[in-house]
Amino acid sequence: MGRPTAIRTQALSKSFGDTRALVSLSLDVAEGEVIGYLGPNGAGKTTTIRLLLGLIRATSGRAEIFGVDCQAHPVEAHRRVAYVPGEVNLWPSLTGTEALHLLGRIHGYVDVAYRDLLIERFELDPSKKVRAYSKGNRQKLILIAGLMTRADLLLLDEPTSGLDPLKERAFRECVAEAREHGQTVFLSSHILSEVEALCDRIAILRAGRLVEVGTLAEMRHLSALHVEAQMDGSVPPLSGLPGVSAVEVDGSRVSCRVTGSVEPLLAALAGAGVRHLVSREPSLEELFLAHYGSGQAASDAA
């Protein structure tokens, strides 16, 4: 990789007693990259981020942020990092303004104009006390506190949980701005459309292990193409063809999935007389479900 790395983990592992929350994660994130970090509940996403922040100690392995060992020198690493958690706990007696003031001072740098823009964009009323904020408003507050620092690396753990669709759109705008600014974004999220729209690369975690990492295009390339065909006559036998799976026949209509070359399938269909053919790349949701829904169980068995 030509660009310097923002995050580098080497065989990073974390166990809580018997639970292996993260198993030997090796991942590089280039500077300026926006990476999506996906996985089912309990996969180890939050664990990864808390390890990167030095809030919990690695059982083994190593993690660096901009070349700084973030377990050994967290303070130095944190100077270039902003973190937005999905679950906010702020001092209930402080007002929004006071909380932003405090968090900004502690971080050491705030883009004041940008902060004011964010407050406007997210429609936050900062004169209220934290205890009087709704869940979404608290989330907006902590999001603004992270984004206003313009930190080189944004570690976002479900940053839009509880936000309404308008604010979520505002968030997407912010990530786009961060990208333009050359900031690196590490985005853990369950909102796949968000990840699909924002991220250059995607990493998928399952039960603490990295099962897939790459651009969306690469992942699509590797995974099955969805094909639907309307035949003139009856449907030829397709199940035996190389790379073809999940064949479903409904009268003269057939649908199936193909991995690898489509040539054998096309030859078989053309020989039988095909009237209409549609092929579609899998959406991120399908990729995702294939990775940790029943599809994964099937391919594990295979």
Partner: peptide, 15 residues
């Protein structure tokens, strides 16, 4: 325990 300390320690504050 209340998670308030997280706000400080994810920023440049030494434990």
């Amino acid at each position: 325990a209340a998670g308030l300390l997280d706000n400080l320690l994810v920023r440049p504050v030494a434990r």
